[in-house]
Computed example of a mutant assay.
Amino acid sequence: MEANIKWVEGDTFIGRSQSGHNVVFDTGADGAAPSPMEMVLMSTGCCSSVDVVSILKKAKQQVENVEVKLTAERAESAPRVFTKMNLHFVVTGKNVSEKHLARAVQLSAEKYCSVALMLDKTVEITHSHEVVESVAK
């Protein structure tokens, strides 16, 4: 895998992935885009969400929406690495099994999410979840 980062101006950079996608980063007060650490946090949530959605689909769960709410704590001094992270999954659907959701989150955490598994070596990562029954329309 390869990527390229190019400085634009001020605290703004553009990353280009090997697959040809551009991502804007901002490292300071400009606020033009997420910071690299925000990207790591969001990447962890996305990676795990991909797993959870896939596992729930294979279990024939009637999932309508999956959202992961991410919270993280960072070290007080440089390098300000993540020290704690929580991924809270909120899954909306019809008759979604809490047992299936718990298993999907566990499998992602322990086996499939490469981003979280890489970070887990130095970050205390926890997971939580809830099922929200969809409202009949």
Score class of each variant (00 low, 15 high):
residue 96 V to H: 04
residue 6 K to I: 13
residue 41 L to N: 10
residue 116 A to E: 06
residue 4 N to H: 14
residue 130 E to C: 07
residue 65 N to D: 15
residue 9 E to M: 08
residue 94 K to E: 07
residue 57 K to R: 02
residue 68 V to K: 09
residue 44 T to G: 07
residue 86 N to Y: 11
residue 127 H to G: 09
residue 83 T to H: 00
residue 127 H to Q: 15
residue 100 H to S: 11
residue 55 I to A: 09
residue 90 V to Y: 07
residue 35 S to R: 14
residue 68 V to L: 00
residue 28 G to S: 11
residue 108 S to Y: 02
residue 19 S to M: 06
residue 4 N to K: 14
residue 108 S to T: 10
residue 70 L to N: 13
residue 67 E to P: 05
residue 110 E to Y: 15
residue 103 R to H: 08
residue 116 A to P: 00
residue 34 P to L: 08
residue 34 P to M: 12
residue 35 S to Q: 13
residue 95 N to E: 06
residue 78 A to Q: 00
residue 60 K to Q: 08
residue 81 V to G: 04
residue 131 V to G: 07
residue 137 K to H: 01
residue 124 E to T: 08
residue 132 V to H: 08
residue 123 V to C: 07
residue 32 A to K: 13
residue 114 S to K: 03
residue 64 E to I: 09
residue 36 P to D: 13
residue 8 V to T: 00
residue 72 A to M: 02
residue 10 G to H: 09
residue 100 H to F: 00
residue 92 T to N: 07
residue 137 K to W: 09
residue 43 S to P: 01
residue 105 V to N: 07
residue 37 M to Q: 14
residue 87 L to G: 15
residue 103 R to D: 09
residue 56 L to E: 05
residue 53 V to Q: 08
residue 85 M to A: 04
residue 20 G to Q: 06
residue 112 Y to S: 04
residue 68 V to R: 01
residue 70 L to Y: 12
residue 90 V to I: 06
residue 4 N to F: 09
residue 70 L to D: 11
residue 101 L to V: 05
residue 26 D to F: 06
residue 50 V to H: 10
residue 67 E to R: 04
residue 32 A to I: 09
residue 22 N to L: 14
residue 89 F to I: 01
residue 105 V to Q: 12
residue 35 S to K: 14
residue 67 E to M: 03
residue 75 A to W: 11
residue 75 A to C: 12
residue 53 V to I: 06
residue 60 K to D: 00
residue 56 L to K: 14
residue 15 G to K: 03
residue 7 W to P: 00
